[in-house]
Structures are given as structure tokens and as C-alpha cells.
Design a protein around this nucleic acid. Sequence first.
RNA 1: AGCGGGGUGGGGCAGCCUGGUCAGCCCGCCGGGCUCAUAACCCGGAGGUCGGUGGUUCAAAUCCACCCCCCGCUACCA
Length: 565
Amino acid sequence: MRWIVTCAWPYINAVPHLGTLVQLVSADVYARCMRKLGEEVLFVSGSDEHGTPIEVEALKRGISPKDLTDRMHRYFCKLIDLFGISFDNYTRTESPVHIKFVQDFYLKVQKNGYIFVEESEQLFCPEDEMFLPDRFVEGTCPYCGYEKTTGDQCEKCGRLLTPTDLINPRCAICGSSPKLKKTKHWYFDLPRFEGHLRSYIEKHEALPQNAKSMSLSMIDEGLRSRAVTRDNRWGIPAPFPGSEGKTIYVWMEAVLGYVSAVKEYFERRGCPEKFDLFWKDPDTRSVYFIGKDNIPFHTIILPALLMASQEGYVLPYNVSSTEFLNYEGDKFSKRFRRGIWMDEALLLLEADYWRYYIISTRPENKDANFTWEDFEAKINNELNDVLGNFVHRVMSFLASRYNGIVPNADLDEESSDFLERCLEVAKRSISYIERFMLKEALKEAMSIAREGNRFFNEREPWRDVKVNRSRSDTTLIASTQAVKIISHVIEPFLPFTAEKLWRMLNLEGDPHSTTFDDMRIMLRSGHTIGYVKPLFEKVSAEELKTRLERIRREIKSEFLLEETS
RNA sequence: AGCGGGGUGGGGCAGCCUGGUCAGCCCGCCGGGCUCAUAACCCGGAGGUCGGUGGUUCAAAUCCACCCCCCGCUACCA
């Protein structure tokens, strides 16, 4: 089986916060796990850099959109690397391969008869010389009289609006009053795929229930055609004859990045023919880690586009969507500086602390809440006390009483039962990952350390080492082996910790390229371990908050890591 | 407003599809044990009748109806 693992393309109008990290880490855990199962995996994503918000942001800064996204993309690549997200290709929507792919793709869709043209009237700002998306028109709500509502939905009374409903409409960018102007757009004939989409979704067992029911109810309500083009300047030029000056709507091109990123990967490696093997072979499964807000783009728009191309692309195998991560009971907010941003996080603690927290609070069924108190508790009482301490008590015992050398003894029944249990738990953890239940999988992985602590306690090797040496030999062999098992099982979640364990155990190779099967291989007696050092340290929420405030005060650059590195 | 998801001991969650053997897990709390280990580890205990109301059933957290609260989407924000 081949796998294409992806997550939603981060929109890079600003440095992303921990919410974005949920999708990145989730996808990474899955990709790493699949690799260690010996599967063929391609893990891709990229920066989503077109669209109005970026155009506006660039306008505000007085630079070109390309300059803005060049810089953001570079910075983002750095963050991804520091968080240990193991992309095979992290690209961007400005990639020439992507641009050409999207243009060719839509010409093909048009040739297949799924594109039509229609004229409509839209608000246009003469000052900025651009058509305004609904969100970028402000005005007074005709229902409740709220004066600062936007053109899609009233922020006060919640009623749905169209921008032309607004009293005194204003351009949200410059404040001048927009005029109605005629414009022509190219539409994707989505309703024609209702039947195919319905049967795809109904028959597709792997799709989770939430994605299914939401998508089916949308189809039941009736799908509408969607405009493919926009009047934006910043974006991929629309390829249709007569569409000069228009660009492709960001969402209608960003979802195709999942395909183009694979194409780019193989072209770069000089084997473009492998692209078909990944995207057109029924033995390939594609999985998407996304937030709940964009399920329909992955269960409806993307499959419909793939169908419309008639290229035989494989349809999404699973769309694993999470709810939202909030911050201390509120939404993350850049404006109010509420939340934690990815670069700030790295200045406070190493990536694995965050990876652990992110997965253990992964909002799989309902919104989750980051609180400093919870963060401190999880890091200290679980990561530190359960995992860190188990590893450390075993390794330091081996170092101080055995000179760091794995002793020679046979396993007794109790200790081989223990190792059998560890392997079973490991297997369960892996199977939870395969079923996209990452939170549960991490819990299982941690419970190996829990088993280990119990085993070590019951066997009391500190007593045996004086009076019954051969029994404590056995205890240590089994316990050290459990540490080795942990180094495998934890790798998808905590890759940096897995590396540390690897070096501490003085194993050959690295924990990333060996398969899970290797965890069964016993450490040889006489093997010398590398070094012993606590894996983690405890954190103090108060201290972290103070440090964060200082960082925000002292580092003026928007790119924190560039100034400090 | 419509649609989708959620509401389970002090906190965080699982169970619900396929009704009984489910009230389970982690943290915290209380008591005990141990001393190899980062005052870490192990064992035991207290604490919930599963948002509300009504219904189906021999039996409901689990199915049905209505209601309340939170989140998201509703197609030109991404």
C-alpha cells in the first residue's frame, strides 16, 4: 500500500499559532507511523499564499505580495523543520509546478465540459481598484442596525447578508464607498457531480462519521456551482480563453496542491513517471489532516474536481478532521495577542514538549482548550514523571550498578510476560494511529512506561542486586528492553526524544528509518549503553508565562527566530 | 434560521453506531507502601446516575421526540 499523507496548507499571512500545529503534528505522526510500518509514504503540504488577505496585508506594508510570502514561506519552512515535521515535500502555491499544474488542470476540466461562464454584479472599490469579497465590505446591518458589520453575516444579530444589503457599504481596506460593477466569472459545474459524490461518500467506509454526515447533508440540500475565478491580481492567472486579468480562486487551486506537490517531488528527483503510481493507482490511499472548518473542501470540492479531470486520480481515502484548539477559553487571536505562536513556543521549550501536549489534547471530538495549568500538569505529571522517570530510573540503575553493561541472564516467566505485555500495548498504540485516534495512541504508548514502572516496583531490583543478583539481572534486561520498545513506539509522536533514547541506548542507525518490527530484537548481553541523562525537565507555567512576556517585550521583529538565531 | 459536532465525578476525556456484563481512563484529592529514580514510583480509597423533560423497552449514558447551552459551516474569508 502507498500513502499520500497531507495536512491543510497553512495560510501564511502571519506566523501560525498552535492551532495550525495540531494539523501539522497529526499528519506527521501518521506519516512517521506508516513509514515505520514499512509502507511507502509521501508526506506533502505547502504554503497557501494567494488570495485577498495576503494582498491586503502586503498593501498595508507597502510591499508586493510575493515579497511578503517569500519571506513568510522561508520562515515557515524553518519552523516546520524545528518542529520535526517530516515532510517529503513542503512546497508553496507559487511553485511553478503548481501554477502550471493548476492551469492545465482547469483547461482539462473545461474541455470535459464542466466549466461555464456567467456575468454578475459585484461591489468594486474604485479607490483600491479591486472587487471586494463579502468579508471586505463593511456597513450597517439592515436588520439590527449594527454599524460595523461585514458583508457576509451580521456580527451582532447573526443574520446572513449579502454585501448589497448593507446600508452605507464601505470598503474595509480604505473606507471609501464601493460601486456595483459587472464582472464575468468562470464556474465549476459542481451540481453535476451530486450523484457520484453521494455514492463515493456513502460507500467510502474509511471516512469518519462527522465528515460523512456533514457532506451528505450538503448534497441533500443541493450543491451549487462555484466560481473558479476571481478578479484578484494576486494569484494564479486563470487559463481560460478570455479570462485574462483574472486569477483562480485560492481554495479551488490550493486543494490541487495535494496533487501538484507529489508531481513536483518526483520531477525534482528525476522520476516523473512515479507520479502516476501515487496519484492514479488504486493501491494508493490519500489522507488529509484538517480542521473542522474545511471538511467540505476535502469531501466535496476536491473529489469533484478530481472526477471532473477524468484523469483517474484516486479519491481521498480519509479526511481526519479535528475540532478547534482554543487558548484559555477563547479563540486564538492575533489582534489581541491571545495565544501562543509557533516560533514563541520554540523559544520556550523544545519541540517534543509541544508535540506531546498537542497530541494529548488533540481536539478529536470537541473543541479543546490550551491552558497553562493543563500544560504544566501534562508535561510534569505525564511526560516527566511517567515516561522520563521510568527511562531514567532504569538507565541510571544500569549505569551505576552494572557499569552500563546489559547483563547476561535468561528471562523468567514474570519478565517475559512483562515484555509480551509491552509489545501488545505497542501494537495497540500503532493500531490506534492507523485508525486516526492519535490521542488514544499516545496514551497507549505512555502506558508502556506505566507498565514499566509497575514492573520495576514489584521486582525491587535495588534489593535483589545485593541478595539475588541473577534476578536483578533479569529485571534489568527486561526493563532496558522496555526502554528500547518505547524508543520505537514514541518515535512518531516525539521524534527528538526517540533520537535521544537511541543514543542513550547506544543503538546503531536511527529510530526513524527502522521499522516497528525491530522493537522485538533483544539487546544483546554485554551491550554497553551510551549515556544517561534525564529526558525532560519540569516546567513552571508561571515562569513560562513570564519568559513569554519578556520575549514579546524584547524582540521587536515579527520573525522571532531570525533575530535570536 | 438551516445543517453538522459536542454537553459524562473537581479538571481533561472514552463509552453511544451494534441497549443489559459500563459507569471506564488520565490528572487532582485522601490513606498506605517503597527508596532504584527528576519529592519521582507502586497499591488502595472517596467522589458521577451520564445537559433538561417526556417516551420506547423486562432493561437506556446508549434508541425516539421536544427543549436549553457551547463550537463550526451556510458556498465571494481562508
